[in-house]
Amino acid sequence: MPIRTSFVMPLYNGGATVERAIRSVLAQDRDDWELLVVDDCSTDNSRDLVESLVDAEGHGRIRLIRQERNGGPSAARNAGVAEAVGEFVGFLDCDDELLSNYLATMEANIAEGIDIVVAAHVAQTPAGRRYPRPDSAQGLLTGLETVDAALQGKLWNFLHAKVYRRSLFDHFSFPDHLVRYEDLVVNSIAYSYSRKVRIVSTPVYVYHVQGQSLTWSQEPSMEFVDGPLACVREGLNPDLAAKVKTRSWNTLRTFLGVLTISGGLFAGSPKQSVDRIVRYVREELSFRDLADVTLAAPHLGLSGMLIKVFPALYAKLYLWHVRRTFDMAK
C-alpha cells in the first residue's frame, strides 16, 4: 500500500513515554502511514524500546534513524523529513500521543489545492485533566490569510495536529540554530508557500503539558526574540512577504516578548534575565503597537500593556494562571 502520511518523531531520552506515542500511531484506523523515529543520541533505553516495537510491528512501517551526534529536535526533524516518502508529513513528539481519529480526520479534509490541514489538540495536565484547544481561525484560508492568522495568534503554533504536503519542505527546513520557537517559524513559512490551508475544530492529538518543557525551563534571552523574528522575516515566501499585515508583525513581536518573559518567570530565572526582556517590551513596543495587537489577540496585547506598566503584577497573575490552567505545583 502506498504511503500517504509520514510521521516524524524526534527522540531523545524518551524511554518513559515513547512506547505510548508509537502505540498511538499503531492504533490509527488507516494503514497508509510510516513512522520515522529519529534517535538524537539518547542515553537511556529509548532506542531499545523502539527497536523492539519495530520488530513487533513486522510490516516495515516503523523506521529507526540514528543521528551520529546530538543536534536537537530541529536537526532530527530535518533528518526525518529527508527520509520521508509520504505525500504528507505529520509530526509527533515522543512524550505526546495521537488520538485514533488522527489520520481519518486529516484524510477527510485533504483535497486538491490544500497543502496543510490543521486540526485541534487536547491538552492533558500533569494531574490527568484533559481539555480541547481548537484554533480561533477556522475554515478554508489562502496561504497569506493563514500567515496573518498565525502571526496574530489565531492559530496554535505547534507542529502537532497538522499534516503538511511534503513538497512544501523543498522551500525550507527546520532552523536548527534556533533554541526556541522553531515550530512558529516553520509553520509561518509553510503557510506562506501553501495554496490553501484547511482548519478544523476536531481534536486529533494529545499534548501532554510538562513543567520541564522548553517553554518553561530555559533562562530567557533576547536570542529567543530576535532569532525567530529574523527567521520568519527572511523565510517567508517572497511573493507574499510584503503583503503581511503590520498588525501581524506587531503581534509576533509582542508574542515573542511576552512568552519569553512568562517562561522565565515560571522557570524561576534570575531577575536580570527576565528584566532584559521586560525592557524590550517597554522600549520596543509602543502603546499604539499594543493597542493594535489587542484588536487581534486581546489577552496578548493586554499582557504587553501590563508588563509595560506593572511587570510585578503581571508576574503574579501569570503564575496564578499557570497553576490554575495546567495544574502545576509552582
Rank of each mutant, 00 (worst) to 15 (best):
T17C: 03
K316F: 13
R20A: 07
E112K: 11
L141Y: 06
F255D: 03
L295R: 13
S201A: 06
P238E: 05
G257M: 07
E112M: 12
A16H: 04
E284D: 15
Y102P: 02
R47A: 14
T254Y: 10
G71M: 14
I277T: 08
L285W: 09
Y102N: 03
K316P: 03
S248I: 10
N237R: 05
M1Y: 02
Y207C: 02
V147T: 04
E83D: 12
D44W: 02
P134I: 12
N109F: 15
D55L: 12
A149W: 02
H177L: 13
D135Q: 10
T325A: 07
R77V: 06
E51S: 10
G72E: 11
F172H: 08
A111P: 13
G304F: 00
R47T: 00
A120M: 03
V179L: 08
V209S: 11
S100F: 04
S42C: 02
F7D: 00
G304D: 01
S269I: 06
K162S: 05
D135V: 04
T142K: 08
V18T: 15
E223V: 13
D176C: 08
I189H: 01
Q67E: 11
V25Y: 06
L168H: 07
R279I: 01
V258Q: 00
S188Q: 01
C231T: 04
